[in-house]
């Protein structure tokens, strides 16, 4: 495999954004995701390979470490930042069709809830694993989710809530989405949520960590 892609996957895993970034300390002075992605494109590496063999393995490794409590939110955020920097170079190739994403994931924090740290983490992890992500933000109503699903057929919807006071809104939103566009898959997550809650409200999947969402999507979009 191209050596640049191996390096790129390490930049993603350890959150090395660009040459100027001081983080992580042991990679100081080295090229980051920004420079390496640009170089790879200049050298004619297939954009699809950059995504599949560079970004995705790095995101997967950090996702698994996060699940195992070996790293915490700050490290994942740095990885996500490195990934989105690389993505900027790849965007034109997705638009032109030279590289394909695996599917579309619509994500938002439910009505009444303004928390976005967890939602953003999941969105970035999913994007880094090769999906198109449509982020509807926080305090999102059923209508907004439904409009996005109609605009993006065959997408999967992710609902996030942090509060014990807002998790209840997931039920109505899940029901509304499934009524408006039957067959739409809904995955949920957030601190107060669990599997039992997921089945009670009629959602399709619950994940305790971002990697779980990625794995769910990987099964659904084969």
């Amino acid at each position: 495999m191209n050596e640049l892609l191996t390096k790129l996957s390490e930049c993603i895993e350890f959150g090395k954004i660009n040459l100027a970034s001081p983080y992580p300390p042991n990679m100081k002075g080295q090229d980051g995701a920004d420079e390496i992605t640009r170089k790879a494109l200049e050298e004619g590496v297939n954009p699809q390979d950059i995504l599949t063999l560079g970004l995705m393995p790095g995101m997967e490794r950090i996702g698994v470490k996060f699940r195992e409590n070996k790293v915490f939110v700050p490290q994942v955020l740095m990885s996500a930042k490195a990934m989105s920097t690389a993505m900027l170079h790849l965007k034109p190739h997705f638009l032109s069709g030279a590289a394909k994403q695996k599917g579309t994931f619509i994500i938002g924090t439910v009505l009444g809830d303004l928390h976005d740290i967890g939602k953003n983490l999941v969105g970035m992890m999913v994007e880094g694993n090769g999906y198109k992500v449509i982020d509807l933000g926080t305090d999102v109503s059923s209508e907004k989710f439904i409009a996005a699903v109609i605009d993006n057929p065959d997408s999967v919807v992710g609902l996030s809530a942090l509060l014990t006071t807002t998790m209840v809104n997931m039920e109505k939103i899940t029901r509304d989405i499934k009524e408006a566009v039957p067959g739409t898959l809904v995955t949920i997550g957030g601190a107060p949520v669990n599997n039992d809650f997921c089945s009670k409200i009629g959602a399709d999947h619950y994940s305790a960590d971002p990697q779980g969402v990625v794995e769910y999507l990987n099964v659904k979009f084969v």
Binding site: T164, T165, V168, P192, D196, K200, I201
Partner: peptide, 12 residues
């Protein structure tokens, strides 16, 4: 404890 959900209400 962690909240439980039943019939539109969360209980602890």
């Amino acid at each position: 404890g962690m909240p439980h959900y039943c019939d539109g209400e969360t209980t602890f």
